[in-house]
């Protein structure tokens, strides 16, 4: 049963607009894969009407954390929810990241993670999994300002190299994360061919898909689309791929970057 009521363990502000909420899974959450998501009803009322999808941010044995940014009514309501309250949840949903499509192990044990804005959310769970496999990870975080850079410390613990870029230069490199990635890639690629994983705004993902193609790197991207049901019935969250429309909720949210029509 994927539909359950969960108790809120904590709901804390971690940055000006960002919160981390943890909830208790009714059964062992060991089956949750990085990249999968939960479709959550933020209250019991008819407004907001639909559930909202949130990627698994941290996966523990019976505790799941989601990281979210307050962007509208639904996330505002969620931010006001208190510890001990109950949430109506469907999940885990979607396919999640593939560690290595061929062998089940990470190719060359090298990975690059690129996070744009609150795209960091599912990538922490992924970085944890990759590091459990003994992978060497380089993480690139891009954000608007220093205040929008979240999870820096979490990544630091899990990765070998951490690069930050902000659009206004208040933290790290001044400019786009894709430019910083391109600059650093030469050096990284001189030694090996890592697998790339990315989540963030679509314009950034498109750019990254291009970079991956140029350097013949395998690249997985986690996409977002407006979604109603989250289980594949409404056909609302369509994304154009080279083999026709696919659903972000059921066929994704993680796709091979080369399959997407950007």
């Amino acid at each position: 049963m994927k539909l359950f009521k969960a108790r809120i363990i904590s709901n804390n502000k971690i940055a000006p607009d960002h919160y981390v909420l943890s909830f208790k899974m009714p059964h062992a959450a060991g089956g949750v894969k990085p990249g999968q998501f939960f479709n959550i009803k933020v209250n019991d009322a008819c407004a907001p009407l639909l559930r909202r999808p949130f990627g698994a941010h941290k996966i523990n044995r019976n505790k799941i954390e989601i990281l979210y940014k307050v962007v509208g009514k639904a996330t505002e309501i969620l931010a006001a929810r208190k510890k001990g309250g109950k949430l109506d949840i469907i999940g885990p949903l979607g396919n999640g990241f593939t560690i290595n499509p061929q062998t089940g192990k990470l190719a060359n044990r090298q990975a690059i993670i690129v996070a744009g804005g609150h795209g960091v959310s599912p990538l922490i769970a992924l970085a944890k999994k990759l590091s459990d496999y003994g992978a060497r990870i380089a993480v690139f975080i891009g954000a608007r300002t220093k205040n929008h850079v979240v999870c820096r410390e979490d990544f630091k613990r899990l990765c070998a190299k951490l690069y930050v870029a902000t659009e206004d230069g208040t933290a790290g490199y001044k400019g786009l994360i894709t430019d910083l990635l391109t600059a650093k890639l030469k050096n990284i690629l001189a030694h090996n061919t890592p697998t790339m994983y990315a989540c963030g705004p679509k314009t950034m993902l498109k750019e990254i898909a291009g970079i991956a193609k140029r350097h013949r790197m395998h690249c997985q991207v986690s996409l977002e689309e407006y979604m109603a049901c989250g289980i594949g019935t409404c056909l609302g969250c369509a994304v154009k791929t080279k083999t026709g429309y696919k659903l972000v909720c059921k066929d994704g949210p993680v796709f091979n970057a080369k399959d997407i029509v950007w």
Binding site: L50, Y226, A228, G236, K240, G244
Partner: peptide, 15 residues
């Protein structure tokens, strides 16, 4: 094939 995305959008009390 269906229509181009976005295909759904929530409005007040409606979809």
């Amino acid at each position: 094939e269906g229509n181009p995305p976005p295909r759904v959008f929530e409005t007040t009390g409606g979809l």
